[in-house]
């Protein structure tokens, strides 16, 4: 299967160009700093509280776990976009794609192979970083978030959507324009999510509703922030769920319908990227 050959090539390129090594080393640095910070904060909590110690440790652990996962979500998104943004446009521009397409290969196999290669990379990265944060919290405080696997799956879906948009852009635009497109969409979703979150605190119901509408519309344009908010909801403690407001989650978390919409969004963008690449001149 040619897609597997292309996927292996994509993965090997990341390894050969030291992208994997850089991600691994910086990821380890992040985990070390996070682990040290977490250790000393928990040390302080352990010493400062009496009978409520276990409850406080769990609450602080949950908050810091969400903070760690927030950064992991951002880093995974950045790594996915930065590594994939020129994979099609760069090879089209340089002409390196020509000898590949001139082989007995279907064009969809090239797009699918690249998608598979990058998806494997982002899966490993997310497991290493997200799993690392969760492992640090667990081994230091014996604390486990409510639904860690669901959260990781939603963060993966977010990165997979960004990857698919990056391939669609790469099949149509120059590398620079593609980067602007993907980060622009990510930024729109990010600011829309924050407007929704801040609007929820507004006393005026009309303002509140307008902010929510902005959040919903931006989530439909680009569901990345909605997926993070649902992932954060999956790992937040029952107490935070009861309070309803945290820096990482919205008062009204995205529904299962939004997740289904995101999966359909991913599939549509992936099919469009294949269609675009299959129809263009090289």
């Amino acid at each position: 299967m040619n897609s597997i050959t292309i996927a292996k090539l994509t993965f090997r390129e990341a390894a050969r160009r030291k992208i994997l090594l850089a991600a691994l080393l910086l990821g380890m640095l992040f985990l070390v700093i996070y682990g040290l910070g977490y250790h000393f904060i928990i040390l302080d909590v352990t010493e400062g509280f009496g009978e409520e110690r276990k409850f406080m440790i769990n609450q602080v652990s949950n908050f810091l776990l969400m903070a760690g996962m927030y950064v992991v979500n951002m880093l995974t998104a950045m790594m996915t976009v930065l590594t994939s943004v020129d994979t099609l446009s760069g090879e089209i521009q340089s002409g390196a794609i020509q000898t590949v397409v001139a082989k007995p290969v279907r064009r969809w196999e090239i797009v699918a192979g690249k998608w598979l290669g990058f998806a494997a990379m982002l899966t490993l990265y997310l497991l290493f970083m997200g799993g690392g944060v969760m492992a640090i919290v667990y081994f230091r405080s014996n604390y486990t978030a409510p639904h860690p696997l669901q959260a990781l799956a939603l963060m993966w879906l977010n990165a997979a959507i960004l990857l698919s948009i990056s391939l669609l852009g790469g099949a149509s635009l120059s590398t620079l324009a593609n980067g602007v497109l993907v980060f622009g969409l990510f930024g729109v979703a990010f600011i829309g999510g924050w407007i929704e979150q801040i609007g929820a605190f507004m006393p005026d119901p009309a303002t509140n509703q307008t902010a929510m509408n902005i959040g919903v519309i931006t989530s439909l344009i680009m569901p990345s922030e909605a997926l993070w908010k649902r992932a954060a909801f999956e790992i937040q403690s029952p107490l935070l769920t009861a309070i309803g407001d945290t820096p990482f989650t919205a008062r009204y978390y995205p529904s299962d319908v939004m997740i289904l919409y995101s999966v359909i969004y991913l599939l549509v963008v992936f099919v469009l990227s294949i269609r675009r690449f299959s129809q263009r001149d090289l």
Partner: peptide, 26 residues
């Protein structure tokens, strides 16, 4: 096919490059 202005994945070794294209020819 040998294209004009031949470009390639220049991080590959010569033998790896040929192996890649042999794989594409299955």
């Amino acid at each position: 096919f040998l294209p004009e202005h031949f470009r390639f994945h220049d991080w590959l070794r010569g033998d790896e490059f040929l192996q890649l294209h042999a794989d594409l020819y299955r």
